[in-house]
């Protein structure tokens, strides 16, 4: 619904500030009359530092047309503080806006500030799930979820792992979900932090638990690869877990070979893993013939495999 201010008595006291775009403006935009006018009133209330209910409505109007406007969000946030609007009210307002502007970054920045102020992530997981139903790999939404994990200490939280699992179950090639899994399981602790100040026995116990976790994740990734041998996400995850646990890539030699015993191989990523195993074991001749096979069966990355062959000779 179009909204104007010049004929609204509630705004009669405001003299709008028109946009100064005189001379030779670059990339001027064919604004609608509605947007031009709303922006004129926005500049005028900003100039007065007015923080009122009608200002909230005006920011809503401008955000609806141009959600990437960087100061209007800040102005709204300060107005909310000024009017002591409860964060939950603001979230209720924000939900439909986020759903209709999936790719907008400012909305998530704003949401983060509001939820931070509320000091509770109640209901957020449900809202995120609703967003991901529309766009399962949305970068902003996953980033926001990870911020939530960090802010509210949800590391290795059963719900977070289950959530990643559910999303991977829906689409084994959802790299965002794989990344989330890695993040909640292995991203939470910085080096040297684990076991700090704990008794020795407990430290051992921790190590044992960590080993079990690594084993479980290796099996989990293998299971996914069995469903989709060409899924780069699952292979990347598998190799990241090995690297994280300081395990050699030859740990998965037998598994990789399951896909490489035919020609053409059933998975280029398995063939690549095979290459890294040979490289790790300094088996130059085997590595070279694997690179030749990769150059043949993976023409998309042929220049890269050719380069690796040259590197092999140099090494």
């Amino acid at each position: 619904m179009t909204k104007f201010y010049h004929d609204d008595p509630a705004w009669a006291d405001i003299e709008p500030i028109p946009q100064d775009d005189t001379g030779h403006p670059l990339v001027a935009i064919a604004y609608t009359a509605e947007y031009s006018e709303a922006m004129g009133y926005l500049r005028a209330v900003m100039a007065r530092n007015e923080h009122s209910e009608r200002v909230l409505a005006l920011t809503e109007h401008v955000i609806g047309i141009n959600p990437a406007h960087y100061t209007v969000w800040l102005y709204r946030a300060r107005t909310l503080e000024h009017l002591s609007i409860p964060p939950s009210d603001e979230l209720r307002w924000l939900n439909p806006i986020a759903l209709s502007h999936l790719k907008n970054y400012q909305i998530w920045n704003h949401r983060q500030a509001i939820v931070d102020r509320r000091d509770s992530c109640e209901g957020e997981a449900d809202f995120i799930a609703q967003m991901l139903d529309q766009d399962a790999k949305n970068y902003h939404v996953w980033s926001y979820r990870q911020w939530m994990v960090e802010r509210f200490g949800l590391w290795r939280d059963v719900g977070e792992v289950a959530f990643a699992e559910e999303m991977i179950g829906r689409d084994v090639r959802n790299n965002s979900a794989w990344n989330h899994r890695f993040f909640v399981l292995f991203g939470g602790r910085k080096k040297g932090q684990a076991g700090e100040g704990e008794e020795e026995g407990k430290e051992e116990e921790e190590k044992e638990k960590e080993k079990e976790l690594v084993q479980r994740e290796i099996e989990y990734a293998k299971q996914a690869i069995r469903q989709a041998p060409q899924s780069q996400s699952a292979w990347d995850y598998l190799r990241a877990v090995l690297r994280h646990a300081h395990l050699p890539i030859s740990t998965i030699a037998g598994f990789a070979n399951e896909y490489n015993d035919v020609s053409p191989p059933r998975s280029l990523h398995a063939l690549e893993a095979q290459l890294e195993i040979y490289a790790e074991q300094n088996k130059v001749d085997e590595a070279r013939s694997t690179l030749e096979a990769l150059a043949e069966f993976d023409p998309v990355r042929k220049p890269y495999w050719t380069y690796r062959q040259k590197e092999l000779v140099v090494a």
Binding site: L26, V27, I29, A30, T32, Y35, I65, N66, A68, H69
Partner: peptide
């Protein structure tokens, strides 16, 4: 056309990003 005429209305969501649009165009 981007340089010399008004950009279509749908660029309004890039209104606060005009300097980068100007850079790309030039």
């Amino acid at each position: 056309r981007n340089l010399k005429t008004h950009l279509p209305t749908y660029y309004t969501e890039n209104d606060t990003n005009r300097m980068m649009l100007a850079f790309f165009t030039l």
